[in-house]
Each structure stands twice: as structure tokens, then as C-alpha cells.
Design a protein around this nucleic acid. Structure first.
Length: 249
DNA sequence: AACAAGGACAACCGCATATGT
DNA sequence: TACATATGCGGTTGTCCTTGT
């Protein structure tokens, strides 16, 4: 839920702003106009869900479709966690896709979207009225997760889509007519990349896994191997639950 | 052609939690 | 330690588009 520690972000500065940083910020605002009447929260959302150059546009592929269903059966409505396993997809996108496509499809197949298990023999009324059916059956018990709250680990651990390596994306890819002639660049990359170490926004986006600070690299490797194993093979539900538990400890 | 209904998706909201003072 | 602020998350709402009548 809460933000990940700033100190965990490699190459990012913390503490008091230096005069040099102040100058860079002033220059940036002057160059890009300060008249944007949006709060930081709104800007972040817009960037994360729409403008980020590594966003993958287009339909959810059958593979992604399958993966979402499987991960949802493991993790429940932890969309950011699921999104972290789908390179280029956002939690909002997956949440919307689930609510508008997958849950309905599963219901039409007689599968409880919350558990991805077939309904026990329930009345035919429920089948005809999925909403009612959903409301009357026992909700899936998903333990509330406070810590850790993993965020995106996509580009660290998973192969990237080719387009992720580009910091630009034509607006036609995004289907936004008003900006057709524009090429969107990550707006802060120039500013953030200015440091000597060359680290920038993209590296920031790539870096935070959100896993517990006490996790050493071997543990991360092990977790990832378990995850890959899960994707490669058809596990029984017990193993899936065990894997899910590993996220909750 | 006009309107209504429904679907899809972007954006907003409230809450939990980390961070800084 | 307490408080204010920033950030990230899931749930919900609003708006636009498509389809049906």
C-alpha cells in the first residue's frame, strides 16, 4: 500500500535539495510551462497508466489472458502484483480487463471469478443472474496484505517487449487522435538523467521490486524460479496456494 | 436519423503506509 | 514520538463509443 522507500531506488538523490537541483527544476518548469493545473497524484496516474513509454498497447493476448486468470486465482484482486508479472500492462488495465471481460466470461462458463472454481450445484436462477449468484455465494477469503506490497518487477526479472527499450512512442500507437503528430517522450527523463551516474526515470521504474529488504538475491532467484515453474507446468491448487502464501509472509 | 442501453476504459476517491521534519 | 505530507493501491465513478431499436 504505502510507497516503497526512496532509499531503495538506485541512483536517486535524497535529503535537502542542492542549488544545482533547484536550478534544474526551475529550468524544467520554465521549459515545459507551469500552467498544468493537475495534482501530483493525477499526473502520476496519467503517466503510469497512459503516457509511460513502456506501456504495451493493444489487445490482451491469449497468453496474457490465461496468465491473468491464473495469477488472479493465486493473488486475488491484487492488481498491481498481477500487473508486475505482465510486462507493459498496468494494474488499472488489468483490473478493467478483469471486470469487463474475464469475470463475465468465467461467470458464463459457470466459474466463480473469485476462486476460478466451478460453482457447486446451485440453483438455475444464479446462472441466469450472475450478479445475484456472485452476491449470494461465499466470497473468497483473501487475507489482507499489508507488507510487503511488491510493485513492478517486470523489467528486472522478465524479458522485455522490444518496445520497452524505446523511450518514445507515437501517439498513433495509443490511438489518440488529438496528438497524432506528436511523439511522446518520457517528460522527466532529461531532467532526471542529468546526474553523473546516468540513472533516470526508466531505471527508477525498473528498479523497485518492493520485496522485503531482508530478501537476499538468492531468495529472489528462488522466488522467481518458483514463479517460472508455476507458469511452465500445471500445478494443482495446493501448490498454487503455497506459492501465493510465499507472497504473504 | 435520433435516441437509449450497454460496454470499455480512463480517471477519481479514499485509505493505508512510508518518509521527512 | 507525533504530525504532515507523499505515494501506491484497490474500488468506484464518469465519460465516450458502439450497438440496437
Amino acid at each position: 500500500m504505502g510507497r516503497s522507500p526512496c532509499s531503495s531506488k538506485v541512483g536517486l538523490h535524497k535529503g535537502p535539495w542542492t542549488s544545482r537541483e533547484d536550478t534544474l527544476l526551475v529550468n524544467y518548469i520554465q521549459a515545459h510551462d507551469e500552467g498544468l493545473l493537475r495534482c501530483g497524484k493525477s499526473c502520476r496516474l496519467r503517466w503510469m497508466n497512459y503516457l509511460r513509454p513502456d506501456i504495451k498497447r493493444g489487445n490482451i493476448s491469449p497468453d496474457e489472458d490465461d496468465l491473468i486468470i491464473r495469477l488472479h486465482s493465486l493473488l486475488g484482486n491484487r492488481w498491481s502484483l498481477i500487473a508486475g508479472r505482465l510486462p507493459g500492462r498496468t494494474d488499472n488495465e488489468i483490473k478493467n480487463y478483469w471486470n469487463t471481460h474475464l469475470s463475465k466470461r468465467l461467470l458464463s462458463q459457470g466459474i466463480d471469478p473469485n476462486t476460478t472454481r466451478h460453482y457447486q450445484s446451485q440453483g438455475s436462477n444464479n446462472k441466469q443472474n450472475p450478479k445475484k449468484a456472485n452476491a449470494t455465494h461465499e466470497p473468497a477469503v483473501i487475507p489482507k496484505l499489508h507488507l510487503p506490497k511488491p510493485s513492478r518487477i517486470t523489467t528486472v526479472f522478465l524479458p522485455r517487449n522490444d518496445s520497452f527499450d524505446q523511450c518514445t512512442m507515437s501517439s498513433s500507437q495509443r490511438g489518440e487522435g488529438a496528438l497524432d503528430s506528436e511523439v511522446i517522450q518520457c517528460p522527466w527523463s532529461e531532467y532526471v538523467n542529468d546526474g553523473e551516474n546516468g540513472s533516470g526515470l526508466l531505471s527508477d521504474l525498473e528498479c523497485h521490486s518492493g520485496l522485503p529488504a531482508s530478501e537476499d538475491e538468492n531468495s529472489l532467484e528462488k522466488l522467481y524460479e518458483e514463479y517460472l515453474q508455476l507458469l511452465r507446468t500445471d500445478e494443482d491448487q495446493l501448490q498454487l496456494d503455497d506459492f501465493a502464501e510465499s507472497f504473504l509472509i
